[in-house]
């Protein structure tokens, strides 16, 4: 059972920009923890209240990756 999951899962990295408002980091990590996913890498670089680059890596199947992307697109802090 586990093997099947591993085969359909692979590593993804998303790169995007957010405004560094209060709680933005928790909102991003919450998208993953809520769904029982682990982050394997995380990069966050910005100034208080300013434009911030985020890179997140995680393991998921295609369907979940798409779902995660849609959630990130809804962040009010996202700078599209």
């Amino acid at each position: 059972m586990q093997t099947v999951q591993l085969e359909s899962r692979r590593m993804h990295t998303l790169v995007f920009h957010v405004q560094n408002n209060h709680g933005v980091l928790q909102r991003i990590t919450g998208i993953f923890s809520r769904r029982g996913l682990y982050l394997t890498q995380f990069y966050f670089n910005g100034r208080p209240n300013g434009l911030t680059e985020v890179q997140v890596s995680f393991e998921a199947d295609e369907r979940m990756r798409e779902h995660i992307e849609r959630q990130i697109e809804k962040l009010l802090d996202l700078v599209p």
Binding site: H22, G23, Q26, R27, G30, R34, L76
Partner: peptide, 14 residues
């Protein structure tokens, strides 16, 4: 409570 509401709101302000 700000942090508590983060997963439950469209957005939270402090």
């Amino acid at each position: 409570v700000f942090s508590m509401t983060l997963p439950l709101t469209k957005h939270s302000f402090k």
